[in-house]
Nucleic acid binder design. Structure first.
Lengths: 127, 127
DNA sequence: ATCCGTGCAAAGAATTTGCATACAT
DNA sequence: ATGTATGCAAATTCTTTGCACGGAT
């Protein structure tokens, strides 16, 4: 049975109010203000728990540490190839892609993720 | 200047003939038959080189080690959530998604990747 | 002759885990 | 009281890197 913990609560609430797609390390350092004794292991354990429960999203940028997103609804992300920033993309989730992909595929397709790459607004300016 | 190396040649040719999206470790172990002294570091170095040159693709499944693909043309992959297998998806690259994603985005979108998830044909049967 | 690539081993980055204790039920 | 969650540190996994030597140009 899953028991309540203030740490997990705080991590969830941190992700709900910070839509910066932080790393576990960032969550850890920021939450440390409130829980000076919290450990990085606890942060990882709870991020994993929350992701498994479907309450948050894990984003693997393919480079560097994973990012976490308090918005668990399927949506797309942009990853800046210059600064690494992760941003939400305002584009409807293309669920029809799952059917399209399944047309010539013998397995069962359940979902997909899409990462867009390029320059974030800031890096585009300072180019 | 880039110099020829038998090791790099062998790695490239391995990926061209094995469309299994192997990990660096798998490439290493298999190529060891031909080059008993090759080191894992050399395999990583050359995989990175080839990927930077655009001759191969690196696939980050988001779980476990990266996979490599001798087919460098943009295409989509399926990742089995049960066995981890990585398979090609027979679906045209949806380059229009880059424009769609860019419509409400102030940065510059250059490319995207999409990973499909679900059960591979084999795992679907042994379910 | 020059200098890039290799093998080896050690280092590094990110994440997980074992264990004793603290806390929620 | 029972058992899950935590903090801490060590361990694990994957990848990169420094260095001396070998090989390509």
């Amino acid at each position: 049975m899953l028991k309540y913990s203030r740490q997990r609560e705080s991590i969830k609430s941190y992700l709900d109010t910070h839509r910066t797609h932080p790393t576990a390390e960032t969550v850890y350092l920021d939450i440390k203000q409130e829980f000076p004794n919290i450990s990085l292991g606890t942060v990882y354990r709870n991020l994993n728990l929350l992701a498994e429960m479907g309450e948050i999203l894990r984003i693997s940028p393919g480079n560097g540490p994973d990012r976490y997103d308090g918005n668990a609804a399927p949506h797309y992300h942009f990853i800046c190839t210059r600064c690494g920033r992760v941003l939400d993309i305002d584009l409807d989730h293309q669920s029809q892609l799952d059917e399209l992909a399944g047309e010539h595929f013998d397995g069962k397709i359940v979902s997909h993720i899409t990462h867009f790459f390029g320059l974030c607004p800031e890096c585009k300016l300072n180019n």
